[in-house]
Design a protein around this nucleic acid. Sequence first.
DNA 1: TTCCTCCATCGAAGCGCTTCGACACCCATC
DNA 2: GATGGGTGTCGAAGCGCTTCGATGGAGGAA
Lengths: 336, 336
Amino acid sequence: MVKITDVARHAGVSPSTVSYALSGKRPISEETRQRVEASIRKLGYRPHAGARALASSRSNVLALVIPLRTGIHVPVVMQFAVSVVTTARRHDHDVLLLTQEEGEEGLRRVADSALVDAMIVMDVQLDDPRLPLLRSLDRPSVMIGFPAEADGLTCVDLDFRAAGELCVERLAGLGHRVVALVGSPPEVYVRGTAFAQRVVQGFTAAADRNKLASSVHPCGAAPAAAAAVAEQLLREQPALTGVAVHNEPLLEPLIDAFEQLGLRVPGDLSITAICPDELAESVRVPVTSVALPTAELGARAVELLMKKLGGKTVPDATLLSPRLTERASTAPRNAP
Amino acid sequence: MVKITDVARHAGVSPSTVSYALSGKRPISEETRQRVEASIRKLGYRPHAGARALASSRSNVLALVIPLRTGIHVPVVMQFAVSVVTTARRHDHDVLLLTQEEGEEGLRRVADSALVDAMIVMDVQLDDPRLPLLRSLDRPSVMIGFPAEADGLTCVDLDFRAAGELCVERLAGLGHRVVALVGSPPEVYVRGTAFAQRVVQGFTAAADRNKLASSVHPCGAAPAAAAAVAEQLLREQPALTGVAVHNEPLLEPLIDAFEQLGLRVPGDLSITAICPDELAESVRVPVTSVALPTAELGARAVELLMKKLGGKTVPDATLLSPRLTERASTAPRNAP
DNA sequence: TTCCTCCATCGAAGCGCTTCGACACCCATC
DNA sequence: GATGGGTGTCGAAGCGCTTCGATGGAGGAA
């Protein structure tokens, strides 16, 4: 193994000079730096990660806790992880993978042993048991999602309220006057992550603002539920021409159900959704949708951590603006 | 931060005794060990990962390189990663996540900097550019999948040849005499990973052994291709009653296509497949299938690495036996 | 010219752990 | 009662790096 003293000898300088040339923490003359860099390349030197971590008390590793619970869309988790790794590398950090199964113990372990400098926690629940731990650890963390009490914690997420609004605004802009939200399963609102409720708030607010007739229907994820809810909607709101869906597994069955009731999409009924792009695109009628910006969320989370590691203060909450992608499921309302 | 000297003082022993009590590398009296362990718990001691890595030249971290290429089934990658992490933890190791994007440079970096002790590489190609690198690095590695030249490398995979055989044996066992294999896209066979070819070999061998009439059809992944291949199959083999499918995206469209040609599954046509269980189960007619045993593959890979790290020699090739799960797509052949 | 400042570099200490050789002690052996 | 071989524990060295204070030399001010 080639070490810093080897490089120093080869370049005719002291080890500390090599270190400073590498870190830039003290001025080194251009000429010396060149010589050092040449030696490093020539000898193929790589600083020993452990030694560096010991001396500097920085491991340059981030922990990423990924969720395993059923009902989580796997490709989304993966996109997120990839984004985190890629962004971390851009900041000269690596990523250690933890499963949620390891839970609090895992977080405490990697933090206390100085294996990682900071951590990112996905799939945060309203009343997440890890909150007190994250607050008490002496290492910075960022959460994806918002718990009920986020004081002193840094959170990043899509602005689901705005996403709900956007779905309605789009429908309103196309002339629709009677709309409905088919939401997530009831249990999600109860146990759940806050985002489902935020979508409802946004939906309702935007509908009111636009003076639309509207209703909200939490809805189980079983495809069979689709037919029932479609029928119910048409019974209660016969003039319905716009539907927003925030329920991934129900999206396709719901469209089928409407068409079987004689409503064509988008001819008779326009549909907007909040769901991953790939799902929106793979439905028989590609759906105009607001996507979860996984890549940007991951990048933001890492960048916030980097700032915190750099001693800067960061905002407690970062909400990313939703972006709506127009697809085939929306059209102007037919003349009445 | 509480360190080993704190524990030593608290327990009334020397630091080296604490170290040996922890590692078990030298005999420590039962009584002393108890005392040390009590002190550790009392003080909440965790060995500093960097210091340990520096002194012992073991980081207790494994690298996992995950593929990003399109056409890879994301949930499978995820299952695999989770299995690797879980098994690694059981052996007191952590997992560092690398993306294939970082490529050879990433592997070299984490190996040379002693960030990781060993690595697992997924999605290995027949002529994988990383092969020479893996051979030259001084750290052990395990590959998931088999390259063309595996000398000196350790590989783990499903026995795809046996999987191909199993699909045929099942059909033969049900009395089917005329069978076909709908394979992966042609480009997979060309550029590709070896497994596609192995499936063909197994399929053909088993068909011959059972004296079945058989044919093999590599087939693009576009759903439109399904109708074409179904029609072609019936034209060329009018007596066809058994089909094996090794082409995930085509599975469902293919069943649709057969049914539109008037063949009921499994009434007129039995289908077996090699695909993830979740896909096999989510098709309209749940498909009798051989699954990729991701959990076991991940666990095996880690365990092989642990053995190598322990200085033991391990077999170059580990092939896991396929297991077929019976579902609704297979039935005995109708009386002629 | 002398003094002071600033820049570039050096030397040494130390990060927290593991590990090796040494050593004391106990019990069995002759 | 002296010798030998284990056990269990200790002390010190050292892993490879960063960082702090010190130093030498160049350049500007007096």
